[in-house]
């Protein structure tokens, strides 16, 4: 039983890692508290649903379409809202409130189009795999495998290109970054596109398993932020460790108490980290004054 919970936790953790990466990519580059992530996540799931269910695309094509369109949507938020604000040199809190606005618009737009009720993609009984005592369903297998492939791909991309370094440089000083001959606009666009891809991946994988409604975004966003804080801001690998730890922790809470208290415990952990180790597991202390 215990092992089963751990495995479930790890698989949930992979999903958290995906959305945490989606949030952290933007946050680490632009320092925008990108709340609209919640809406992009929902949008990804609904594009997937629309392509698979209404247009009757094959599953893989629907998935790719969802990734693509969420990336485009994410780029649109940058072009239409964040970039103009950035040009006006607005404060980050202004961007965050605008982000709340984007989230409200998108989520309620989706609710207008698709309705507020829960949608299910596939309600047939899922095939299961048994390894000794442990049972893993087919969607869970898919979540783990696709999730890991995507994360590996991101690492390969960051490892074989200078992009990771560029992103960190941009975060430190955008003006200096531009003077050094890089293009702030393009780098930000790539970051937003990547963020959209990871959000959509997380949401499609989740939605295929448990369905969706327009309001699933906020809890996911919150878990993603918690995962990012636990790992430590500023690094992508921290998101993965944070996501996995959070997934396992929540599974253990369910195992030990009940699912009702999952959120409360998650946030207690968040508060503990914020107060006692705000730099996260991987971060280091910085000079303050």
């Amino acid at each position: 039983m215990f092992l089963q919970f751990i495995i479930n936790g790890i698989i949930t953790g992979v999903l958290y890692s995906l959305s945490a990466i989606g949030f952290a990519l933007v946050y680490n580059t632009t320092r925008i508290f990108h709340i609209a992530v919640a809406a992009l996540y929902v949008a990804g799931a609904y594009i997937f649903y629309f392509a698979f269910h209404t247009l009757e695309f094959p599953l893989w094509a629907a998935g790719i379409l969802a990734l693509l369109f969420t990336a485009i949507l994410s780029i649109l938020t940058e072009i239409s809202v964040y970039r103009p604000l950035y040009r006006k040199k607005s404060s980050l809190n202004t961007a965050m409130i605008a982000s709340i606005g984007i989230m409200t618009i998108l989520i309620n737009g989706i609710a207008l189009l698709f309705g507020n009720e829960t949608k299910v993609l596939d309600n047939s009984i899922q095939q299961v795999f048994t390894f000794g005592e442990i049972i893993v369903t087919l969607p869970q297998m898919g979540q783990a495998i696709i999730g890991i492939i995507l994360i590996a791909a991101l690492f390969a991309f960051l490892g074989f290109s200078n992009f990771g370094l560029e992103v960190r440089a941009l975060c430190n000083d955008a003006a200096l970054f531009e003077i050094s001959g890089f293009n702030v606009k393009t780098t930000r666009l790539i970051v937003f596109a990547l963020s959209g891809v990871f959000l959509a991946a997380g949401s499609c994988l989740t939605a295929y398993d448990i369905g969706m409604d327009p309001h699933i975004g906020m809890p996911v966003l919150i878990n993603a932020m918690v995962a990012m804080i636990i790992g430590g801001t500023g690094r992508i690998r921290a998101c993965i460790v944070g996501g996995l730890l959070l997934g396992i922790l929540q599974a253990l809470v369910v195992f030990q108490f009940s699912a009702n208290w999952q959120n409360a415990i998650t946030f207690l952990v968040l508060l503990l980290f914020l107060f006692f180790k705000p730099q996260g597991i991987f971060g280091s202390k910085k000079r303050l004054v």
Binding site: K88, S90, T94, I97, I100, G101, T104, I105
Partner: peptide, 12 residues
């Protein structure tokens, strides 16, 4: 949606 729009426009 209207609130959201107002917020985004106001922030700009």
């Amino acid at each position: 949606i209207i609130y959201g729009l107002i917020l985004v426009l106001l922030m700009y």
